[in-house]
Nucleic acid binder design. Structure first.
Lengths: 340, 340
DNA sequence: CATTGGCACTCAGTGTTAGTGAGTGCCAGT
DNA sequence: ACTGGCACTCACTAACACTGAGTGCCAATG
């Protein structure tokens, strides 16, 4: 019994099952792939694969389907990413090219990813922690209320209303603004926070009281991890393809998609080192998502991951093309953000 | 045959059907509601209601279910909105109270609406056209690229990158910024556009070329209806309740939710005059959404509708409570926005 | 010793059939 | 105008046998 052929059989099973969504039997397998051996031989291989836990039988008299472990092996050793066709590449490029601002880039990316993979796509906004401050604005809404606008190098714009304890006149405001600007612009978020805190104690600025409350508000806005939770989801309609399996696949996924924290967690564990990560079924921490896989990767200029993007779908998915698509989109997004 | 009782029968049918999701028969009806007449009598009424098109029979030997026309009558004449309980009111208030900025208000509203109604909630951002300009900022990204930040009275922040034909130094930029600010701040969007266009021809500002290109960019950002399409959807997981009816109810809805244009259209036709609008099943323009209803209303201070919010769900829904919830949320949102 | 053809066995899925019961429409009686 | 009675309809369910794709095992083969 050749080890190579056993792997070929596994590959064939995965491919067929993904294509047909039906347990694949020995005969059909031999016919569709030119394995050059008889069904009986394949049956022996299958029995071995089953013993080793790579495939399973839904019922005694049915064909085999891959287990999570089977998919894992397939992804790790039997797969070379299908390169995108020239047309697809161009489509990606032009589609992303037209984006006007960061929001637009993010939204276009989800749509693109969703339509390329025909799965549910998820894109995280660039994390705050890796960005530098490009501009800070303080706008008077009333005597005691300011609107803080924080613009980051990645193009993210955060806003926040600040309530002051005491009134602030125009001149004080402008001194304050200049002080804050001088201290923070160009710095990475963490450094800016430090610089600002120092500023809070500087006596030359308007009465320490408003200054420090503004400063703490800014720091809060910068560190608030609620802001790091920003995520956009798209392609939910693709779930319609899995109308059967509603309870096992669609329902839990719909619920997870509402919980951005869960999503972030799913993506988050993924993007270590900018490499493409695949999480298959039960490998994840969520019982309910045992029937879904995540394909994700970091994006951002160089190796530094600004954020994560990827797709979520049923374990039974076309990994080679999905992985290729995710990687391709991540690359293009990185490039776009680099230019901007 | 009393006309009043016929209506009572219709009401009872609607209520029972909404509660049980099963065709309701004459006997069960008499038992559950104290109608004080015999099943046979009710059957006669039912026959009449069926002739008039208010109810229908799925099959000859089954009970009746309301038609769209039946729901319509129910909503128009047989319904008084269930007032929210004190607890619910307080919950709404405190939940919305904590919002930090407009994004937050909008997102909290969807969540709230979704959980109150257990339906899919949709909230449109305040339209640009009704807002006034609170602040405009021009930030140099490079010599020939500006970041335009447009802050509106409603709290909306729009951003846009502007490419310039010629370089602009700091001083020119600041003159330009002041000019733009002076012309636009405090104006309604349309007026601001006019004022800015005039400014574009003012010779005292930096070389007409950059000025006018900045001006047109701003006007574009202000009039761009892509920006008016901003919509947030939530509570998709509630679709899980309709797992059966997947093809008739869930799938088309999932698809519609992806198409924000369609959603806007659905909501948009709704909110004339701030009144609560209910669109039932086939009354809408979309064939595929024949099994879904929309309950929507405008929100905003006074009678002026800044935007629309509402829910989308199956025709078979609890209209009285849903309508009450939508109205209540709209009121609270209006109040919050008014304060800000 | 890996491979193969043959064979008995399993069992999900599909009709078919008959029985059940909730519900209806109609009619004659109050 | 309402009601009780009655015959009728028809979706749904359970029971049953049948079919066929697929399996495991074994003895034969190169």
């Amino acid at each position: 019994m050749s080890e190579d052929r056993k792997l070929a059989v596994l590959r064939a099973i995965v491919e067929d099952y993904v294509a047909t969504e039906e347990p694949v039997g020995s005969k059909a397998l031999v016919e569709r792939h030119g394995l050059g051996v008889s069904p009986a031989t394949v049956r022996n291989d299958m029995a071995a694969l089953e013993d080793e836990g790579y495939i399973a039988q839904p019922h005694t008299s049915a064909g085999r389907i891959p287990t999570d472990k089977g998919y894992r092996l397939f992804v790790d050793r039997l797969t070379t990413l299908k390169p995108m066709s020239g047309g697809e590449k161009r489509a990606i490029a032009t589609f992303l090219e037209g984006a006007l601002d960061l929001d637009d880039v993010v939204h276009r990316s989800v749509r693109l990813l969703a339509s390329l993979t025909r799965q549910v796509a998820v894109v995280q906004y660039p994390t705050l922690s890796r960005s530098t401050v490009r501009h800070i604005d303080l706008i008077a809404l009333s005597e005691t209320r300011l609107l803080l606008v924080l613009i980051l190098s990645t193009g993210r714009v955060e806003q926040r209303v600040i309530e002051l304890d005491a009134a602030l006149d125009d001149e004080q405001l402008s001194t304050l603004r200049n002080g804050v600007l001088g201290a923070a612009v160009g710095q990475r978020i963490e450094d800016a926070a430090v610089a600002l805190t120092a500023l809070g104690e500087d006596r030359r600025l308007p009465d320490p009281l408003p200054t420090s409350s503004v400063v703490t508000a800014i720091c809060e806005a910068m560190s608030d991890h609620r802001s790091d939770e920003r995520i956009v989801v798209g392609g939910t309609a693709n779930l319609a393809r899995f109308g059967d399996h509603f309870d096992s696949a669609v329902r839990p996924l719909l619920e997870a998609l509402e919980e951005h924290v869960v999503l972030l967690h799913l993506l988050g564990e993924a993007h270590t080192g900018g490499a493409l990560t695949v999480r298959i079924g039960h490998e994840g921490p969520y019982q309910e998502l045992a029937a879904t896989s995540v394909v994700a990767t970091g994006y951002g200029p160089g190796d530094e991951a600004l954020g994560t993007l990827g797709i979520v779908g049923p374990t039974r998915m076309d990994y080679p093309s999905t992985m290729a698509a995710v990687r391709a989109v991540a690359r293009y997004v990185s490039r776009i953000l680099d230019e901007a």
